[in-house]
Design a protein around this nucleic acid. Structure first.
Lengths: 196, 196
DNA sequence: AAATAAAGTAAGTAAAAGCTTACGAAACGG
DNA sequence: CCGTTTCGTAAGCTTTTACTTACTTTATTT
């Protein structure tokens, strides 16, 4: 009989900003003060939306997977680029690596993996991601096809590793962008198709 | 004309412990109090060996590369296992992944990469590592051989990515050990030899 | 319009963490 | 054995940080 509760909507609105800050600074460096500042609210308001800082981080981990998976679906929906699903995602990823703060969140979360909740969030995220990649590889490798290259589950892990190192390369500027893109595409192709 | 200065020797003695703690807890979670505790000295003694916590971390980054490279040389010196260099390292890594806290240090350092010194340490470490892997691949792919598989520089990045994801798999127990080892060997082989 | 519950403001608190200081004990050279 | 320098102990200091509390304002329902 009073103001309607809008906490969930506000949480949803602030979550992208929370993600951004966590992926810029990592878990430990991110202070609740900084989060509040960037969200343009006071700290105690964040504490009305989540019980503690860890919960904010867990929400960010979950959201970052969701947004990435969403992006992939958009790409697959577009009828542009290579005709096979994996090829299209590979092309997209080779160019847009690091656009989302995905790997920065993952890296920072990994050093907190002795916390059960954070570990669980990471495990769930990786499993979902691996499955997603497997499915995309499968669409171009029918189950009963002649064995070319690696089994999809293995190729998928290889791709996740490749994406990781590719982000590191980008982060540290170990290679110029073009060269990194070419490397990504070539290695991904090798993993998925067994070709050069 | 008084007691000889043994700071360098003590630093060398404590460094492995410092590495251990940093790779367990990451940079931010590691407190100087914890470091002192594990080294069985008082905090201010650490501050006599290094100017600040960051310097301790930089020393750890450097040391962890050194010890890993040393390990590889030992393996290559042993005349056991596969006859080719890359194959032997691959076999070794597939079994001993994560023995050193290597990747945990790297992960935690990556979230501090906006600090110039830490970034420089990481860049130097990755470059050296990539070169090392390239050399090992080259020993089995003479320059003028027919083109089988990827160019060594690319395969090397792929291997570094594979090693990274393999550590994550181990860390999060995403696969049982045997399966992870098999995956590592198969993907590594695919990258280096272009075979299944 | 009055009541009620949410949204916002502005402090404050208690603990932790990085780093320092002050001082006594031990070892080496002369 | 004495003076100098290093080594070890113990306490403290200052800043930061996660989280809280007390209070005012705003919006919605009856």
């Amino acid at each position: 009989m009073a103001r309607p509760n809008q906490t969930e909507e506000q949480a949803k609105k602030l979550l992208p900003i929370i993600c951004e800050v966590f992926s810029e600074l990592g878990y430990r460096r991110t202070t609740t003060a900084e989060l509040a500042l960037r969200c343009e609210v006071r700290e105690n308001i964040l504490y009305r939306l989540w019980p503690d800082k860890k919960a904010m981080f867990l929400a960010a981990i979950d959201d970052i997977f969701r947004s990435r998976a969403e992006r992939w679906n958009e790409i697959l929906a577009d009828r542009l680029g290579p005709s096979n699903a994996a090829g299209r995602i590979i092309e997209y990823e080779s160019h847009h690596q690091g656009d989302s703060g995905f790997y920065r969140i993952v890296f920072t979360a990994l050093t907190e993996a002795d916390d059960d909740d954070i570990r669980a969030a990471l495990v769930s995220m990786y499993k979902r991601f691996h499955k997603l990649v497997c499915q995309q590889i499968d669409t171009q490798h029918p189950v009963d096809s002649p064995e070319t290259g690696l089994p999809p589950e293995m190729a998928a892990w290889g791709l996740l590793g490749l994406a990781t190192v590719s982000n590191i390369i980008r982060e540290l500027k170990l290679l110029p962008p073009r060269q990194r893109e070419r490397m990504f595409a070539a290695v991904a192709n090798c993993l998925v198709n067994g070709e050069r």
